[in-house]
Amino acid sequence: MLSMKWAVHLAMAGCLVSALAQAAEVYERVQVADAFLELHTGPGRGYPVTQIIERGAWIELLKRKTDWFKVRANGKEGWASREQIEATLTEAGVQKSFRDVLEEDYRRRRVEAGFSSGVLEGDSLMSVRVGYRMNDNFTAEIALARASGDYSTTTAYYVALVSQPFPDWRVSPFFSLGLGKYKNSPKATLVGAIETDSNTANAALGANYYFTRRFYMRGEFRRYIAYIDENRILPYDEMSLGFGVFIY
């Protein structure tokens, strides 16, 4: 009885998937306005041109891989470059244009993620972070950093507020304040080493540089203040360079 129920669920899911697939069969059509459109055998400039589509024919844009479009017309299928597709006309009769990911989108980004690498007190460090841009000047971030050294491994995670006073600059400086945890575990081979697990406040100064498309580079200098106990407050310095991607 249970297997019957699963079979019915699977059948319904299958119907839904096939319905969706059939619903997605409508492709955008553009008309070739150049003398002819060249179709390559693969999505790359090195692939040979084996077919052409002449002026006036309507082609369907099936899919896109990076800057190449798989098109279909008159029973022929092949890959056309973006430059060629840009010269075609849409159903409305105007030239086909593409909405690139522009610097404007970078300025209006809302969710971003990044990966950086650097040095923390002499140890190689890697960190990942996710940020939410609340408005033009302020971003809330959560980050995890891990440094592996000869004698110990350090893990730090924190929540930070990043302030960008000049978000419109291509190289945009920022200042950040964060709170979190700082843990240092000495290697098992060392004898008598003490593990540190403390709260931390950290401050950073850095800059973002918009690179291309969805990528931007980020460099920063961060100082962690670890509150070991009432009497000991130790600073740890980090310098890192990395890249970020913004999602939307």
Partner: peptide, 11 residues
């Protein structure tokens, strides 16, 4: 009502 279907990007 011209609704242009999105092109499936596979990156």
């Amino acid at each position: 009502d011209i609704r242009i279907p999105r092109i499936d990007t596979e990156d």
